[in-house]
Amino acid sequence: MIPAAFEYHRPGDLPAALALLQEHGDDARVIAGGHSLIPMMKLRMAEVPHLIDLQAIDALRGITIDGHRITLGAMVTQAEIIAHAGLTTHAPILREAALQIADPQVRAMGTVGGNVANGDPGNDMPGLMQCLNATFHVTGPAGSRDIPAREFYESAYLTAREDDEILTAVSFDAPTGGQAYEKQKRKIGDYATAAAAVILTRLGDRCTAASIAMTNLSDTPIWAEAAGEALVGTACGEDAVIAAITAMQAAIDPSEDNRGPAEFKRHAAGIILARAIARAWSRA
């Protein structure tokens, strides 16, 4: 497994990176942690004549918690998320999800930006960002723009980001209420058979708001709006959960792979969602 030859670039700031993207067009790809792209290059399934390494761009780093707004630079790694005390306090679902991505070495390299920008339906962060109603910040030759995470994914590996744009950060409001990220996988290092991100707010014994998103159950992450709505106003009891599952199952479209047939995934998705709801509710 040897990649084809390429030219390597390590721009020191964003304008330089954008200029390189402009210059090389379709021949260029940016690389963050590289743990999605490099295996594809080694299998020669991705041809990248010009590789633009973002590691030297300080502006893409850092976790900021400004009041209730949390911003993660694109180059923030899963390991940094896990280790960040502020995030653990203000958005524990991030740590919970990050811990279920790949393995320690991969998390040391894998970044938020890479995970969300790649468009791989197997990645966990895109689903989580649907749940959080995050905003993706991209910068291109025409300047910067914000794209709601829920409008970012078009199909597998196809996103709202233009080829000459770089995803610089993601931001979201610190979630309130109970949160849970539940993932079924075959083993450490695997993508999800089914995964659910759930955030619930609770007043007394009533759910006042709910956000539910699912991972690896369609060619894009799925924000199951109707599933969340099915919980609002309820005590998240059995009937409400079944209604949420039914709504979620109407929104997903799993396909068969080595993790099993679609029917199984559909069923597993329901179980995983029920678990996530129960856990989020218990924390709400």
Binding site: Q184, R186, T193, R259, G260, F264, H267, A268
Partner: peptide, 16 residues
């Protein structure tokens, strides 16, 4: 006996 095959066996036994 991976997850989906166990699930299928349980399914065929009517456990779902």
């Amino acid at each position: 006996h991976d997850h989906w095959r166990i699930w299928r066996a349980a399914h065929e036994l009517g456990l779902h």
